[in-house]
């Protein structure tokens, strides 16, 4: 026998009903710079970070999530740089659409809508750590690292595999702030992104994929097919052992990718289709990096 607004009502309504009071006072700090941001996080480790608002405000609006402490990093200019060694966490998708990293620019263009891209940031994508985060396969393919910083321990560079620990879970400590992403020295120029969705704009990825071709061979990363962004390691090993990329090799490569991903069936797609599409995308992107 259930009592109250049961969890089987599912998603939206149960969440909302137990939410805290909208009118409870909230502490809000608009950090002027990185030092102030780190100060606030040191004093208020539970404070939630507000960047573009494209995830946090959805939770506020729909789930009636009521954060008690907010620190906004919208005014922290140090976080908005795209350089040759790092991308600032506060860089918007609109800015990244124009960046020099081909596959990241391609991914940026598929994020939400123009309105979302003008607000949302890559740091938010990393912090939210959704399996479908559009920027995450690029980070995995680039073997980029997540730069985090706290007042107490200073800067910490975390390999992406250690940073993303599960569905919407990361190894970020409560007093830490994501400040950016490193750009590895050996980042291949030949890099391509693709994303499947059931609509041509404003769509959450059914599957996304980045393939890079560099001196060390092909790198293949995928999103929406596992709890975290993932590399198709076995498929990479297979294709990197081949001297020529024939159609037969690509077929086999695609099959391994299909096999290697760990997707689920949900209301957006099925496990079977996600496996299939992962293989097709990876195969097509290998071809694109060879063009």
């Amino acid at each position: 026998m259930g009592v109250g607004v049961s969890t089987s009502y599912g998603r939206s309504y149960s969440d909302r009903a137990f939410a805290t009071d909208y009118r409870m006072p909230m502490e809000f700090t608009a950090a002027a710079n990185l030092d102030e941001l780190l100060d606030v996080k040191a004093q208020q480790p539970d404070a939630q970070l507000l960047a573009g608002g494209t995830d946090l405000m959805v939770a506020v609006n729909l789930a009636h999530h009521r954060p008690e402490q907010i620190v906004s990093l919208g005014r922290v200019e140090e976080l908005k740089d795209v350089g040759s060694a790092r991308i600032g966490a506060g860089t918007t998708w609109a800015r990244l659409e124009q960046c020099q990293y081909t596959a990241l620019a391609q991914a940026a263009r598929t994020v939400g809508s123009p309105q979302i891209r003008a607000a949302g940031t890559i740091g938010g994508n990393i912090g939210t750590a959704s399996p479908a985060g559009d920027g995450l396969p690029w980070i995995a393919a680039a073997d980029a690292e997540i730069i985090v910083e706290s007042k107490e321990r200073g800067e910490r560079i975390v390999p992406w595999r250690e940073f993303f620990t599960g569905v919407k879970r990361t190894s970020l400590a409560s007093d830490e702030v994501i400040t950016g992403v490193t750009i590895p020295d050996n980042l291949p120029d030949a890099q391509e992104f693709a994303k499947v969705g059931t609509r041509n704009a404003m769509v959450i990825a059914t599957v996304s994929c980045v393939v890079m071709r560099g001196d060390d061979g092909f790198r293949v990363a995928l999103g929406s097919v596992a709890p975290t962004p993932m590399r198709a390691t076995r498929a990479e090993e297979m294709i990197n052992a081949e001297s020529t990329i024939s159609d037969a090799v690509l077929e086999e490569f695609g099959r391994i990718v299909q096999d290697e991903v760990q997707p689920i069936t949900d209301h957006r797609s099925t496990e079977a289709y996600r496996r299939h599409a992962a293989g097709v995308l990876a195969r097509r992107l290998v071809k694109r990096t060879l063009q």
């Binding site: 507000l50 608002g53 609006n61 123009p114 309105q115 607000a119």
Partner: peptide
């Protein structure tokens, strides 16, 4: 052009 539903008013 931004979605005002995603802008926290205080921000």
């Amino acid at each position: 052009a931004l979605c005002s539903c995603l802008v926290m008013a205080v921000d």
